[in-house]
C-alpha cells in the first residue's frame, strides 16, 4: 500500500511537471472484442439462439475486420490508430488488439472505427497476413477482402438443420450486363464519455442478434447461404450492422 502511495505521488509529480511541458502524458491503449448474443456471452456450436425472425441458430465461425480506429477527445482532437485488425474467435489472442499506440491522457467523448476496409484500403491482395488468413473477396464481386464471416447452422422451414453463411464485403450490383461495385464498409461511432488516465484496454462489444434485426428483419430461410453475390443482402447487412457495436468496460492496468 505504501509503495502504491509513493507511485501515485510520483505519477502526480510527473503529471504536474508534464503539464508545464509541451509533451502531454500518454498511456498505452488496447482493445478487446466481446461477442454476445442478446444478453448472453457467445458459445459456439449449439443451436440455442433465436433471432428476431424466429430462426433457431448456432454460431460456428465469427471473423471480422476493423480498421482506422479513432478516439475523440473532448477538446476536439482526434487520435488515430493506424492499421487494421482481424478478429477470429478461433485464434486465441485475436480477440485483443494491442497496437502499441500511446494515447493522450484526458477525457474522451467517443470512439469510431471502420467496419471492414474503406475504398482506399480495400485493395485485392494488398495485405500478406490477410491473404495467408484466406480473407480475400473474389474479384468478380469487386475484390478486396471480406469484412465479416458469420457462419453456423439453423433450423429451416422443413425442420432440417442446415448451414448459413453471413459473409459481407463489397456489394456488386448488376445493371444490364454491367457490374457496379459499391463499397460496403460502414463507420461505427460510439458516443460515450470515458477518461484515459492509465494503461487501458477498451472493450468493444458486438451483439450478434442485431445483425438480423433492424432496420431489415433477416430470415435465414431467405438469406442463409450464397449471399455474397446478392446485392440486396449486402446492402441490408450494411444497414443492420450500424448498431451492433457498443462500448463495454474500460479495463485499467
Amino acid at each position: 500500500m505504501k509503495i502504491q502511495h509513493y507511485i501515485s505521488a510520483f505519477l502526480l509529480i510527473l503529471t504536474v511537471s508534464c503539464k508545464e511541458d509541451v509533451q502531454p502524458v500518454s498511456h498505452e491503449i488496447g482493445f478487446s472484442f466481446i461477442h454476445n448474443v442478446g444478453t448472453e456471452a457467445l458459445t459456439t456450436n449449439t443451436i440455442g439462439y433465436t433471432n428476431e425472425a424466429g430462426n433457431e441458430f448456432s454460431v460456428e465461425t465469427l471473423q471480422y475486420l476493423v480498421s482506422n480506429i479513432r478516439l475523440n477527445k473532448n477538446d476536439g482532437k482526434i487520435i488515430e490508430i493506424e492499421g487494421y485488425h482481424l478478429v477470429d474467435i478461433y485464434q486465441p489472442g485475436s480477440e485483443t488488439f494491442s497496437p502499441g499506440s500511446l494515447v493522450e491522457a484526458g477525457n474522451y467523448s467517443g470512439i469510431s472505427f471502420v467496419f471492414g476496409f474503406d475504398e482506399a484500403d480495400n485493395i485485392s491482395g494488398e495485405y500478406p497476413d490477410l491473404n495467408l488468413a484466406n480473407w480475400n473477396w473474389p474479384d468478380m464481386l469487386g475484390g478486396g477482402y471480406h469484412f465479416m464471416k458469420l457462419e453456423g447452422k439453423f433450423i429451416d422451414e422443413q425442420q432440417n438443420e442446415v448451414g448459413y453463411a453471413t459473409h459481407m464485403g463489397t456489394a456488386r450490383e448488376i445493371s444490364g450486363n454491367e457490374s457496379i461495385f459499391h463499397p460496403n464498409h460502414f463507420e461505427v461511432t460510439i458516443l460515450q464519455n470515458f477518461t484515459i488516465d492509465s494503461e487501458t484496454s477498451i472493450e468493444i462489444k458486438m451483439d450478434i442478434l442485431k445483425w438480423y434485426k433492424t432496420p431489415n428483419l433477416w430470415d435465414l430461410n431467405t438469406w442463409g447461404a450464397g449471399i455474397m453475390p446478392n446485392y440486396d443482402a449486402q446492402v441490408a447487412l450494411n444497414q443492420n450492422g450500424q448498431d451492433v457495436f457498443s462500448l463495454g468496460d474500460l479495463i485499467k492496468q
Binding site: N131, N136, P138, A225, I227
Partner: peptide, 19 residues
Amino acid sequence: LAEEKGDCFHCHGSPANPL
C-alpha cells in the same frame, strides 16, 4: 470462386492466397 457454384475458395484459397 462463386459462392453459389463451387464455393471452393472459402477453404482452398484464391489467386491472392497462392497456398
